[in-house]
Amino acid sequence: MIPSSGGRERAARALVLSAVLGATIAVAAMSGGRGAKEPSHLDGNDRAATDAPPAVRYDELPQRAVAGGDFFAELAMLPASGGKPLGPRSSRRAYVGAPPVVPHAAAPRGAAGCRACHDTGMAFPGGAQAPRMSHEPLTVCTQCHVPAVGSISPVKEDG
């Protein structure tokens, strides 16, 4: 999947900002989706529902970079990214806030294997870096993060 040019520009801008803010510890604000309208039929108690974690906007990423965790991960160079580091970020998500798919082979046996690299964002030789988890650790990673490409290849279609 090829990222749109708009995505590349924003990605490049965010990358610069993140380099500046990279070492700063930021606290992720968990409320207040921008421009969100509250459903009028919900009563007082339910209104708090809009406190559900909002999808992260790309232009908010610099402020969230550290707490958000997985931002630097996109420095990984993957063939599909054409060298644009943030390209894979959007290509791995159906929409902003969706759980990214897993672009590598993974054994779906509990969380330990996943967390070995993704707890801290492990760096690999050659510049690749495992994205750091953007949420509290949970137990069943594969419940939300599925392979980008399945283990079995699609059957050939009839001609």
């Binding site: 990222p3 995505g7 421009g35 969100a36 309208k37 459903p39 339910d46 529902a49 929409y95 902003v96």
Partner: peptide, 17 residues
């Protein structure tokens, strides 16, 4: 919309349960 390659949510998203 979902499934298109969107990189950010447009302004004015309304949320409902």
């Amino acid at each position: 919309r979902m499934g298109d390659e969107i990189v950010e949510l447009p302004d004015g998203v309304s949320w409902d349960k």
